[in-house]
Design a protein around this nucleic acid. Structure first.
Lengths: 145, 145
DNA sequence: GCTTGACCTAAAGTCAGGTTTAGGTATTAC
DNA sequence: GTAATACCTAAACCTGACTTTAGGTCAAGC
């Protein structure tokens, strides 16, 4: 069992955020001892799931819905599974998007490195859009398709 | 040259968002024809960069700073290069984080699939935290380390 | 017994990133 | 000539996710 201060330390989250999550119903069955929150393993695992669902783009209200399903027992297994399958899709899509953005960023790193060497963008502009060095051309094409 | 409506179509962005970006200074040298915005190749490429920098987690005000640097010419090449190198770091870190979250999500997909098969979580609870099937154990460990 | 530190609540405040509203212009279609 | 469309501005509004504020409880140390 942990206090809110200990959990705040463990997760690197402000105490105010943990209280906000609680107020929003993200820890539906958290115990209290004379008014003071006691975080058990259940809440710790819930918090790991919250961080994961948040990173996947889910809103607080939908995370609450999931937590409510958990309290409802086996009858909601299918809903919970469907939620995680949708999150899987969303995260995979997001990673693909970021990979594409990363190619743009890498291209721009090379671009400015070259511009600094040359002192201007003249040579670069002559290479664009399809006479770049092969490795760079790949990045450029992926970022601009 | 494109109108705001055409650009809105091309990028799938609301017209109001493009006007908002303009008001925030993200197209510092955009031309106008009797008050009407004309988006040239410069603004189209700017928009690609905006989407990229936004996806990388940069705020509008910092994107504006970059656009200002572009108008200032070769003297800001080093700043622009440094910005993209920082973005590269940020995106790589974000992708790693999402990979970890994806492992959690995949674990949960398997978890509920199994719970549905079994009708309860009893067998699952006996396997936790370190007697899971090998492939699943990897996901679980990565998500919980 | 009083101060310090860790906890509590309700309610107001903040911030980024847009979106909506209200009112207006200019061109094209009938 | 008038109606529909596509554009314009300034300013108000909205939303989600927190954070801050103001005021209070309670146990431990001195």
């Amino acid at each position: 069992m942990y206090t809110i201060g200990q959990v705040s330390e463990m997760f690197g989250l402000p105490i105010s955020t943990l209280r906000y999550y609680d107020k929003e119903g993200l820890f539906p069955n958290m115990e209290r001892q004379s008014g003071i929150r006691r975080f058990s393993e259940t809440e710790i695992e819930a918090l790991r799931v919250i961080e994961c669902l948040k990173a996947s783009g889910l809103e607080i209200r939908d995370i609450r819905q999931f937590m409510v399903w958990v309290t409802e027992g086996p009858s909601t297994y299918d809903k919970r599974k469907a939620l995680f399958e949708a999150r899987r899709e969303a995260v995979e899509t997001e990673i693909e998007k970021l990979q594409k953005m990363l190619d743009m960023v890498k291209f721009k790193c090379w671009y400015y490195e070259t511009a600094i060497k040359d002192g201007n963008e003249d040579a670069l502009n002559k290479m664009l859009p399809d006479s770049l060095p092969p490795e760079i051309q790949k990045l450029y094409d992926n970022a601009h398709k």
